[in-house]
Design a protein around this nucleic acid. Structure first.
Lengths: 344, 344
DNA sequence: CCTGGCACTCGGCAACCGAGAGTGCCAGCC
DNA sequence: GGCTGGCACTCTCGGTTGCCGAGTGCCAGG
């Protein structure tokens, strides 16, 4: 709860620091904030802001930099979210226009575009089997030894798996089993299909035990697909940030970016916050490697169903207004696009 | 064509430098090489080696470092390729033992393991559609609006694609078209299936024009799947190398590593050399960003068919003998494993 | 309550210096 | 002739010093 002038000063300071990456002096703020007061006055206000823990001084005779709490105040109350230029929006929409591009490639390109437009690192997770609903299963005969299992989900995801064909099972028996399975599981979220759901099928078709087991293995979201459908863009951009010139800092971050599982949790966690777009700043992050980073995330969805997540990772000194605006736009476009591709 | 003593000296110098990353002095070589001569003699020999362009001096009063040509000589004639410890081999074999792990995940893990074992960056490319042979095509009815195209290849690769269902085409007509297509393309390498191959099918089944077109789009190796099936491991390892403490150098490398297309060409190019395992050292690399790197690559195959490529990227000061030994082992194991999973 | 003035603090940079590592060369030895 | 110990020389590296400039905190006056 700052007074009007302190807010102006904090805003000017944060924005100047975001641009220059240099501690900001009272003179620069006086020039930029439009508060119409002299640097000396600004200095008094800055001392107060420092008292409140919103700004800090790297050392006595330097300017001020925003603290984590300072950024938080800025993000929550001061920044004006940037509207994207129409041309930019059009560019993104073009990206999605080609229906012949498979979903995986779409997600990958999104990560690329986001990282290029921000000069930060982009994370995009595509639709995941575990979040989708069961629609239908098919078994195709590939040759004498193998069957192809095809799993269709309500989102239009397709999962295939090659199985060794269990001997001595007539095709009709198999078909009946599949039919039973399909009617039993239709519409169920795959994440919740557990062993006991297949119990009755197993009892009904005892000769197809191994087949049912294979099916369970395919349906069940497993660690084997960790990293599947998660794309990064612009990891090298991290090196461009002046705050990451120290290699120790960046090594931790890059190592973290290789851990698909962790990234996934990161995206899902922050995106389940009550807000539309979540911003996690510096020390608010759970992983110590990320304490110099901020992460902006959002889920994209349509028709009440979450398809996936997008996120931008950059330094605390991130262009929040730009990034939030961009995420908001891409979240919309991507959700809409995946809805278009979804099966009716 | 060096004499015996010069070879001993060069070998000792390269190996010492690989271990320490420091220019190597005549004293260290005298101690290590086992040539039984004094440092002064070593110095004379070093002067000769420098004359020949095999070693160089960062500055007058430092020790010597190997030049690109020096590494080349070492790799071609001096190094003894390391045999892997049995326990290591067993560890890798365990990785592959679980048949339920899908091929994609297998490739991904291989990249992870290679990077961990070397502390360098690993590139692994899995089986690619473009290199596989056509086996069979199936069309599944998903619902009123969509068909699922399933493409099976001789390697056991499966490619699926959701198509909008063309209206007013009877199922039998479609089936006949697919049958004709299957018999016509069976055994053909997918990379060589061109538009004209489908011409006769198109003429024979004029009502299925759009369908044939969609099929062509699926079969044809396209840029849309760029990066598909290519996995990196340990990109952050690059930062650990003392030669890459300068950020400028590493930024170029990391940016390159984000370009799937380039990596792919890199792997394929060097692996088509007449040798089993290809080593590209420093300036021999085509990309200027890689002039401080060496790349060791190999194709893995079985039954006369190339499945994919593996590679290790590290600094010129790379532990060649270890890396080459490892690549040789993994190449074997991976080829054998994919053969096991291949369709009969 | 604001402001100009002023003394003060501190980091960064350049210059400097000595220590240490390693060289090239030479004269002597086997 | 080839090898070796000795020696003067070169160059980098780490630490120290001194200066400059940016920015501050405080105070007295408006």
């Amino acid at each position: 709860m700052l007074d009007r002038r302190k807010e102006k000063i904090l805003k000017a300071l944060v924005e100047e620091y975001i641009e220059t990456a240099q501690p900001v002096g009272s003179g620069a703020i006086a020039r930029r904030s439009g508060a119409g007061v002299s640097p000396a006055t600004i200095r008094n206000e800055l001392a107060a802001l420092e008292e409140m823990g919103l700004v800090e001084q790297p050392h006595t005779s330097a300017g001020r930099t925003p603290s984590g709490r300072g950024y938080r105040y800025y993000v929550d109350r001061l920044m004006t979210v940037g509207k994207l230029a129409g041309s930019v929006m059009a560019g993104i929409r073009d990206l999605y226009d080609d229906r012949s591009v498979p979903v995986q490639a779409l997600i990958r390109r999104t990560a690329g575009v986001l990282s290029e437009m921000t000069e930060y690192t982009a994370l995009v997770e595509g639709p995941q089997l575990g979040r989708a609903t069961f629609k239908r299963l098919e078994l195709l005969e590939v040759n004498g030894d193998h069957l192809l299992l095809v799993l269709l989900t309500g989102d239009g995801l397709i999962q295939t798996r090659l199985l060794e064909r269990p001997p001595h099972i007539p095709a009709e028996y198999r078909e009946a089993m599949i039919t039973s399975l399909n009617s039993r599981l239709a519409g169920r979220p795959l994440g919740t299909v557990a062993t006991r759901d297949l119990e009755s099928v197993r009892r009904e078709f005892p000769r197809a035990l191994t087949l049912v087991e294979s099916i369970r293995g395919t349906i069940e979201p497993s660690d084997a697909v960790e990293g599947e459908g998660l794309f990064l863009g612009g990891t090298a951009n991290m090196l461009k940030q002046p705050e990451f010139q120290r290699l120790e800092k960046i090594e931790g971050i890059l190592s973290l970016l290789e851990r698909g599982r962790i990234l996934r949790d990161l995206l899902a966690d922050s995106a389940l916050a009550p807000v539309d777009i979540s911003v996690t700043i510096g020390e608010e992050n759970r992983h110590p490697e990320m304490r110099d980073c901020s992460l902006v995330t959002a889920a994209y969805h349509a028709g009440g169903h979450t398809f996936g997540y997008i996120g931008i990772l950059g330094p605390c000194r991130m262009r929040y207004s730009h990034v939030v605006g961009l995420i908001a736009a891409v979240k919309e476009l991507l959700g809409r696009e995946l809805l278009r591709r979804r099966l009716a």
